[in-house]
């Protein structure tokens, strides 16, 4: 049985975007804070801290989850994937990010990391979703700038669900 007392700082190891990393955390530390403050991975944003806004969404073992509703210690030994993993080493955007850019799917960009991670999981399971399915997944996020239409268009574009498949190579 793993046990960490409240005053204890345990060493938590995770695989972050393919790299083995570790840092200390007390039991109450949220994964969102662990990523940002302990590991310096500030691409993951923190909004509401009670699971409503979706800004902090990351993948744990490939599944999109709220990192603010996850303790760092719960992620121990797991593979965590964040928005930092999406662009190439040369800074080149991946297809999903490029589609967001093409469709004006972000303005201030605060909510964008979480939305990108949700669709990274979802498109892996369902590569050609319907518009209704995209809206359903997007309902787990709040965006105060875009009105969502651009985001739906971006996901339709990248998934080739609409007849704009020619843009996929962009």
């Amino acid at each position: 049985m793993r046990r960490v007392d409240r005053s204890q700082r345990a060493t938590i190891s995770i695989t972050l975007n393919g790299r083995q990393v570790s840092a200390e955390a007390e039991p109450r530390m949220l994964l969102s804070d662990f990523l940002r403050h302990s590991l310096g991975a500030t691409g993951t944003h923190v909004g509401c801290e009670h699971g409503v806004c979706g800004c902090c969404t990351v993948l744990i073992d490939g599944a999109a989850v709220r990192s603010c509703l996850t303790l760092a210690v719960q992620a121990e030994g797991k593979a965590v994937t964040t928005v930092e993993s999406l662009a190439g080493a040369d800074g080149r955007l991946n297809a999903l990010q490029q589609a967001f850019k093409n469709n004006h799917a972000l303005q201030c960009g605060f909510c964008t990391p979480g939305i990108l991670m949700s669709f990274t999981d979802f498109l892996g399971r369902n590569p050609t979703p319907s518009e209704a399915e995209i809206v359903e997944v997007l309902s787990g996020h709040l965006c105060r700038c875009t009105g969502y239409a651009g985001i739906v268009a971006a996901v339709l574009e990248v998934s080739g669900s609409k007849d704009n498949a020619e843009k996929r190579s962009v």
């Binding site: 049985m1 793993r2 960490v4 409240r6 005053s7 039991p27 109450r28 801290e49």
Partner: peptide, 13 residues
């Protein structure tokens, strides 16, 4: 906000 401190137990069975 953040949780108040607590002890964490992760049983295997």
């Amino acid at each position: 906000m953040k949780p108040r401190p607590f002890d964490y137990l992760r049983p295997d069975t």
